[in-house]
Simulated assay, not measured.
Amino acid sequence: MKHRINSSELSIEINQTGMELSSIKSLHTNTEYLWQGDPAFWSGQAPVLFPIIGALKDGFMVYKNQKYAIPKHGILRNSPKPVLKESTENSLLFSLVWDEESLKQYPFKFELEIQFTVLGSKIEVVHRILNQGEETMWYSLGGHPAFNCPLNEGEEYEDYFLQFAYPETDSTWNVESSGLIGTDTKPVLENSSALPLHKHLFDDDALIFKNLKSREITLMNKNIGGLLSLKFDDFDYLGIWAKPGASFVCIEPWLGIADSVDSNQKFEEKEGILKLEAHQSDVKTYSITILK
């Protein structure tokens, strides 16, 4: 089931399955900014990554000497279990709560709430993670929104670039065929705030940045300027990805990362993993602003 909310500028839709953003449309121009999930390339649109990001080494993690198999990107993606808790004209609040089935994959008693609010040209995505158990809980969290690129007929992918808030010098970490993070890096940004998009940029999978200063990134058209920006102050890592040949680009704020090839598979020692003490909660937010 999909739910729609509007502001004066935008209409957005959320798929209750997976609590996934499924449309961002301008009310003035009828432009659709979000990738519509063509299965010939990639059927996703903006999956929520929880409680892991990417792949686990050998497909499982270890916690208290028990193995837990968690699928790539976690247990929320495509889940039919989220419920709508609250709705207003411009806000929707969804929730996913642990159950006996989830404990077989992820051994923590959690609630994950996601609130989508649209105000003017801005969409705020607020995640509240609650540990309902009696022990420390470990988790990762990430966004995976895919934006149409190019947006308009007659444009080319190469007409677009990503603009970082600050000049950056950073490398991407190589992704192995297994989906694990390799030990090698490749320079991508050298004192530059612009990352040109081109059809071979993602031939070797996602670009994965661990050391950015910027916490805002803008999708730019070199002829008409900025189209949308994503602000991710609460997130430490950034992934950028597209299926080669597809007309989209994903801008992915992450708290955590896929396992490395040399991971010891202990969940509490996983790179980027976060923890919550018993009955504590945390809030992580990113926002999308439509500029044109």
Rank of each mutant, 00 (worst) to 15 (best):
E124P: 00
V125E: 08
V126N: 14
H127M: 09
R128V: 15
I129M: 11
I129N: 06
I129W: 01
L130N: 13
L130E: 13
N131Y: 07
N131I: 10
Q132H: 14
Q132L: 15
E135G: 02
M137H: 07
M137N: 10
W138I: 11
S140D: 13
L141I: 07
G142W: 01
G142S: 03
P145D: 08
A146I: 04
P150S: 03
G154W: 03
G154I: 07
Y157E: 15
D159R: 02
D159P: 02
F161R: 07
F161P: 00
A165L: 12
A165H: 08
P167E: 13
P167R: 03
P167S: 12
P167F: 01
P167K: 08
D170V: 07
D170H: 06
T172V: 03
W173Q: 12
E176P: 09
S178W: 00
S178Q: 10
G179A: 12
I181Q: 02
I181Y: 00
G182M: 10
P187L: 09
V188L: 08
N191F: 10
N191I: 06
N191E: 15
A194Q: 15
L195V: 05
P196S: 14
L197G: 05
H198Y: 11
H200Y: 14
L201C: 06
F202L: 08
A206R: 03
L207R: 01
F209W: 00
K210D: 05
L212K: 02
L212W: 00
K213V: 05
K213H: 10
K213A: 09
E216P: 04
I217L: 06
T218D: 11
T218N: 09
M220W: 01
N221F: 02
N221A: 06
N221W: 02
N223F: 11
N223K: 13
N223H: 13
I224Y: 11
